[in-house]
C-alpha cells in the first residue's frame, strides 16, 4: 500500500454534465497533491467522491487502501474535509464547533477538550474561542473550518479551494499551516484555481480539465515548460500585432499572437523585455499596453491543451501603459 490516495478511471455524471471522465492519479504519503483546474473541471466532484459524500458511476478510488464505495466507514475515519465554503455552524462558538466534531468522531471527553484548545491555539483563534462564529471574519471562519477538519487527527486531509476569498496574509498563514501538517506526516489533497498556490505547496500537480487529468507532473517540470514570466503586448489591431510578432521572432525570441495580442513566455524577463521593445520600436507602431506577470492557470492551459481555461483569472499587473488603458483582452 504505497499510496495514500489512489484514483483510477473515476467517472461521474450529473444529468447532462460529465463531471468526471476517467480521472486517475496517485498521491504519496505525507505529500501535498495539487488538483489544479478552472471551475467545473471536476475538482470538487473528485474530492466529494473521495470523501464518500457522493458515489462514483465508475472507476475505483481508495484512501489508505480503503475503497470509498465498499468501505466508506474506514475512509471517513481517516479523512478530514474542509470545503469551499466554511462549513461551520454560525450559531455555535468556535469551541462548540470543534467540540461537536470531536463528539461526532468519538473522541473521549478529555482528549476532545485538549485537542480543541490545541487547534484554537494553532489557528490563532484562542481569543475568539467563545464567540459565536457568526461574528467571525471570512478568514477566521476559514481557519476554523480547516481546524474542524483536523479535530480527529486524520492522516489524510482534503482541502477544497481552501484559500478562496482569503486575503494575501490569510493565504500565507494557511499555506504555512498546511506545510507544517505535511511535515508531521499528513497527506494533503488540495484543489485550487491558483497556479501559484499549487506551485508553493504541492509536491505534485495534476492539471484537470473536463473531468480528466491533462498533465500530472512535479511543479518544477511544469514551470520549466512554461517559463517564469509572461510578457504580453497589446497592439491597436491584428495586422500590427502580426507585424510585431514577425519582428520579435526574427530576434530569436519565442512568441505567439492571439488577435491584437502578442505573448512571450520566458525565464529571462529583463533581457527579453529590452529586446522585444527594441524590436517593436523600429517602425513606430508601439504597443498600446505591456504587461508582465507570473504564469497563471490559464497559461498552463494554453501551453498544455492549446485552449484557455474556462474560468479565467486575470492577475496581470501592467508595467507600462499608453494613455488608453483599455486593451487587455
Amino acid at each position: 500500500m504505497a499510496h495514500a490516495i489512489s484514483v483510477e478511471g473515476l467517472t461521474k455524471r450529473f444529468r447532462r454534465l460529465q463531471a468526471l471522465d476517467g480521472i486517475s492519479f496517485q498521491v504519496d504519503r505525507a505529500t501535498v497533491f495539487g488538483l489544479l483546474g478552472p471551475n467545473g473541471a471536476g475538482k470538487t466532484t473528485t474530492v466529494r467522491v473521495l470523501a464518500t459524500i457522493i458515489r462514483p458511476d465508475g472507476g475505483r478510488a481508495e484512501v489508505l487502501g480503503h475503497d470509498v464505495v465498499h468501505d466508506p466507514e474506514s475512509v471517513r475515519a481517516s479523512i478530514g474535509l474542509a470545503g469551499q465554503y466554511a462549513a461551520v455552524d454560525p450559531n455555535l462558538t468556535a469551541l462548540e464547533n470543534l467540540r461537536l466534531v470531536g463528539q461526532l468522531t468519538a473522541l473521549g471527553r478529555r482528549a476532545l477538550h485538549e485537542r480543541a484548545w490545541e487547534l484554537l491555539e494553532i489557528f490563532g483563534l484562542k481569543e475568539a474561542a467563545n464567540r459565536p462564529v457568526r461574528t467571525f471574519s471570512g478568514g477566521m471562519r476559514r481557519r476554523l473550518d480547516v481546524a474542524a477538519a483536523l479535530v480527529h487527527r486524520p492522516p489524510v486531509l482534503f482541502l477544497d479551494e481552501p484559500t478562496t476569498g482569503l486575503d494575501i496574509e490569510g493565504r500565507r498563514e494557511l499555506w504555512k499551516m498546511i506545510r507544517d501538517l505535511v511535515q508531521s506526516g499528513t497527506t494533503v489533497l488540495l484543489t485550487t484555481q491558483y497556479l501559484e498556490e499549487a506551485d508553493r505547496l504541492a509536491d505534485r500537480i495534476a492539471v484537470i480539465d473536463g473531468g480528466k487529468v491533462v498533465v500530472d507532473d512535479r511543479p518544477e517540470s511544469l514551470k520549466a515548460r512554461l517559463g517564469t514570466t509572461v510578457l504580453e503586448l497589446t497592439f491597436s489591431d491584428e495586422p500590427t500585432a502580426l507585424d510585431a510578432l514577425t519582428r520579435i521572432q526574427s530576434m530569436g525570441i519565442q512568441a505567439e499572437a492571439e488577435r491584437e495580442l502578442v505573448r512571450i513566455t520566458t525565464s529571462d524577463s529583463a533581457a527579453v523585455l529590452l529586446n522585444v521593445l527594441r524590436a517593436v520600436d523600429v517602425n513606430g507602431a508601439p504597443p498600446k499596453a505591456i504587461s508582465m506577470r507570473e504564469p497563471t492557470l490559464d497559461d498552463v492551459f494554453l501551453a498544455i491543451t492549446g485552449h484557455h481555461a474556462k474560468a479565467r483569472e486575470d492577475q496581470s499587473r501592467p508595467v507600462l501603459s499608453s494613455p488608453q488603458p483599455k486593451g487587455a483582452p
Binding site: E73, R76, G83, Q84, Y85, A87, V88
Partner: peptide, 17 residues
C-alpha cells in the same frame, strides 16, 4: 446550503444522527 451537511457526511459518525 451552508455545506454543514457535507461535513457531517464526511465524518465517521452515525448516518442517522
Amino acid at each position: 446550503q451552508s455545506g454543514l451537511l457535507e461535513r457531517f457526511r464526511s465524518l465517521p459518525m452515525a448516518r442517522s444522527a
